[in-house]
């Protein structure tokens, strides 16, 4: 039996089930190209909005033993300038997924249509950034608002539509069902966990924005729980994200019910070799246990 890491995600073919998470090294075409060279199965861009946006002043990052807290504030060059970056990124030969942020459905539609023109393989709606006023999580915790956005965008594009959700709500499953009901093709879970760091010496929060999003191994257990619950709540594919940086982490997410796994903080903590290392361990595990594909173990942790 030959074992392959090839993964099908709503019609998008990935050479392996790892992909770059949004927000890390995804602001320029050349960075995305390097991620492709490093072995990721796909790469998600930095979240792009209508206009150029500077983001917050520093400090925008706090480094912890087991993760990061960031409040970048959605910096980005805007949709117009991003066309050039996309054309460079596509040379990497892997699917490029366009992450988008906006406040209203009409703007999401404008952005999604442009990204489809630029050659994106799928759209990932950022309904979950915890630190940008008026965007992300602020629109992503209301199932009706989310359904409305998904419905509008879905009607305007031909490529798959993913929704990246926040764990900072007790309504995660309701929001996911709203995505599915409105025609969304996949759920990406989870974005960062809203968090804070305080400096005792300075007697103030460290981040300029005061609060930020916690990522890395610190939130893996939260991500796994969310994916596990989502797997039982919806039928559309789930893409796991949150603290994965080894093949074991990827296996845990697959077993919880994810078809693919995004890696973000792991790029900072382990370096760009994180994708190849995770894939190497993954294929060894599959071979040793007689599986032919990652899809064979998706959701196996849902024991009776």
């Amino acid at each position: 039996m030959t074992t392959s890491l090839e993964t099908d995600l709503c019609g998008t073919r990935l050479r392996n089930p790892t992909m770059l998470a949004s927000g890390v090294m995804g602001e320029t075409g050349d960075s995305l190209l390097r991620v492709a060279e490093a072995g990721a199965g796909a790469a998600v861009t930095k979240s792009i909005g209508l206009e150029p946006r500077k983001g917050y002043p520093n400090p925008t990052l706090v480094e912890l033993d087991d993760g990061y807290i960031n409040a970048m504030g959605l910096p980005g060059p805007g949709i117009e300038a991003f066309g050039e970056e996309m054309s460079v990124a596509l040379k990497g030969g892997i699917p490029i997924i366009a992450s988008l942020f906006a406040a209203i459905p009409e703007d999401f539609v404008t952005l999604a249509v442009r990204m489809q023109e630029y050659g994106a393989s799928a759209i990932e709606l950022n309904l979950s950034c915890p630190h940008a006023k008026g965007y992300g999580m602020e629109v992503g915790v209301d199932p009706e608002a989310v359904a409305n956005i998904v419905m509008h965008v879905k009607a305007a594009i031909d490529i798959p539509l993913w929704a990246k959700l926040t764990p900072n709500t007790h309504r995660l499953l309701d929001v996911a069902r709203a995505v599915e009901g409105a025609g969304g093709d996949a759920i990406v879970a989870v974005n960062t966990v809203k968090a804070m760091a305080i400096s005792v010496e300075a007697r103030r929060p460290v981040l300029f924005n005061r609060t930020g999003g916690l990522s890395g191994p610190a939130i893996k257990a939260v991500g796994l729980r969310c994916v596990y619950e989502l797997y039982e709540a919806v039928d559309i594919p789930i893409i796991g994200v949150g603290g994965a940086e080894t093949s074991r982490d990827v296996l845990e997410y697959l077993m919880a019910g994810a078809r693919a796994v995004q890696i973000g903080s792991g790029v900072g903590r382990k370096g760009l070799g994180v994708f190849q290392a995770a894939c190497g361990g993954l294929i060894r595990y599959l071979e040793e246990n007689g599986f032919s594909s990652p899809s064979d173990i998706v959701g196996v942790a849902h024991v009776q």
Partner: peptide, 11 residues
């Protein structure tokens, strides 16, 4: 910005 290899602002 981040200084730690994550955000990509210094590429």
């Amino acid at each position: 910005k981040c200084g730690a290899g994550l955000c990509g602002s210094c590429v």
